[in-house]
Nucleic acid binder design. Sequence first.
DNA 1: CCTCCTATATATAAGAA
DNA 2: TTTCTTATATATAGGAG
Lengths: 237, 237
Amino acid sequence: MGRVKLQIKKIENTTNRQVTFSKRRNGLMKKAYELSVLCDVDVALIMFSPSGRVSIFSGNRSIDEIMTRYVNLPEHERGKLQNQEYLQKALGKFKSEADRRYQPATSPGSVDSQVEEMQQKILKCKCQLEDMEKRLRIYEGDSSDINTLFEAEYREQILQVNLKQVRMRKQVLQDQYNSPGAQTTTQATDNPQDWDHGMDQVLVDDVVKLSLLEEETRSVEDKSCETDGFEGTQDGV
Amino acid sequence: MGRVKLQIKKIENTTNRQVTFSKRRNGLMKKAYELSVLCDVDVALIMFSPSGRVSIFSGNRSIDEIMTRYVNLPEHERGKLQNQEYLQKALGKFKSEADRRYQPATSPGSVDSQVEEMQQKILKCKCQLEDMEKRLRIYEGDSSDINTLFEAEYREQILQVNLKQVRMRKQVLQDQYNSPGAQTTTQATDNPQDWDHGMDQVLVDDVVKLSLLEEETRSVEDKSCETDGFEGTQDGV
DNA sequence: CCTCCTATATATAAGAA
DNA sequence: TTTCTTATATATAGGAG
């Protein structure tokens, strides 16, 4: 933004980089501040300047309180992919190369440990993948992999229950649509969780993927908070 | 910024606050991303949505690594932290990636390609995970998470296809059971025409068409806010 | 490193879908 | 909630002090 459209890649000129950092850091903090006040939410921002000095901002409560809140989150809430991966997609593919560019600048002495770390990461991902695949097979698994009547009936039942729920929900939505003013009805349901059969292949797979193609990855908020009184506080500016 | 100059004070209208949060969060992440790339610095951003869900961004390295780097700074460089020890401990537990200390760059060399390869592998895994999560939500997601008629119909279609397949398979197995030796055990080619039970009719074409129009992204994670001071109660949809 | 200035690039509030 | 549009408000690159 400014006189010239700037490429999002490392600014090579040291002085320029410093200046830009300074300006943008302020901009970022301002934005963070505004967000925390406007939406009354916790925001924590930590930035290390090119020279190694740290700058922080935190809205609504202290930085360590927010960090504590963060580290106390259950893993699935914390370890998701709301960060870079998300951004890569949200902002577009252009990032990938700029992102990789940094990699070479990694240390040499720790390469071993880094590699090791990455391998662990990969392993972890693969475990998760396996787990999910297992669960997914219950639903998407090719029916030809069902070898016993019992299995077939079991799966049929699961699907029936699920279908029924969805239809009920659909009905509610239709009613709502037909008669605006009606209240949102959210019925509690139990969802099948830990079933394990052994099946492969996916038939509806392509259909599903199709719809996922143009989707974005982002968490969606579905509820809001109603607080009486508002108090925007910030420390760390 | 926008049609109207906005006062920096809590937005009282819940819906508006949500929307603004969503938009500004993205904007903030983008800015943070740009800063991290342009200036080649570590940036960590943690935001809790009005509903208590967390959104994070981290540039150059993982959020845990950056937090660790921050927490381990000498006190005079960042101010006193109330929970320093606790945080250090907690962060240390994120063994997967949090124990990498900051290290200056030297000369990488041949290991680069290997590292990059692994990086891509990780990214790929994460994408797969994400993809599967979405598919899984179709089945395991609570039906109350469905908010549009479109979504409901979409899920219904998929479940119908699946149910039908299972029933076909079940039929095959039953026949086999009734007349042993008459058919191959592992036979899987069931023909819809032969096994039409007359219910849950599905036209795959419709499903595909549907999915093209559809959009659906919802986080079905349970949320937990322990040390926070807001009480979320409101209807988001 | 910060401030001011100016021309542009971006972000985003509203409103509709 | 997300997406798209449009009108405006802001952020910020370059340059000077």
